[in-house]
Design a protein around this nucleic acid. Structure first.
Lengths: 101, 101
DNA sequence: CTAATATGCAACCAGGAGGTTGCGGAAATG
DNA sequence: CATTTCCGCAACCTCCTGGTTGCATATTAG
């Protein structure tokens, strides 16, 4: 269920894009390309991957395409990782009590 | 920094392996293969990816190779996602106060 | 209108991901 | 010792990823 979102975050360039968009206003493609060592097309492809995972939405504004952050998928990831950690804590407790028997 | 860990979780088969290993005892490759619709070699490859990301450790026990969960990388991911969410919350608050001015 | 800017689309490419099969070796079983 | 079980290595295949380049289109600026 969550694998596509994880995969979308599994690239440093996309992680950097998420960091920028989650900490600022919606931004256009060329603005996101400036300061990156990639081509505009490469940035576009990464943004499409992020949009496919729902992490980012896009809207048109004149000749620009603005991308903005959507917090929901990453919130879902946090919940999932919390559940994994909680399950692991229970596993540890169970193994410990088993050793102590 | 965290991108390789995200990438390692970006495949349903590996997510399922993590779920199994975080909720039970260390398990061997053939045990993890049973109940999966994959070949043993495919499972081995996925386990290697997880081990490369540090999510899983392996130790030999006779002719078996046991894999066990390591909680540290996923805990690091949780912290990272918490920071992203907190940054987003601050961004929202800042935009809201800007609109209200 | 012309020029500059922002984007999209398509082709192309190298390399890696995911998966299978076949074979060989080490360890437990009988 | 013979057999089964568990595993590693290597070759091979297909498809996707990440990236570039070139060209076409829409929008804004002068």
């Amino acid at each position: 269920m969550h694998a596509p979102v994880f995969a979308a975050l599994g690239h440093p360039a996309r992680l950097a894009l998420v960091a920028r968009l989650s900490g600022g206003e919606p931004s256009s493609i060329s603005r996101l390309t400036a300061g990156s060592r990639m081509t505009r097309q490469a940035v576009t492809k990464h943004l499409r991957v992020l949009e496919g995972a729902g992490i980012v939405r896009s809207k048109h504004a004149g000749r620009e395409k603005l991308f903005e952050y959507d917090a929901a998928p990453i919130a879902g990831l946090r919940d999932y990782l919390d559940r994994v950690s909680a399950q692991w804590d229970r596993t540890l407790a169970r193994l410990k009590s088993f050793v102590e028997e």
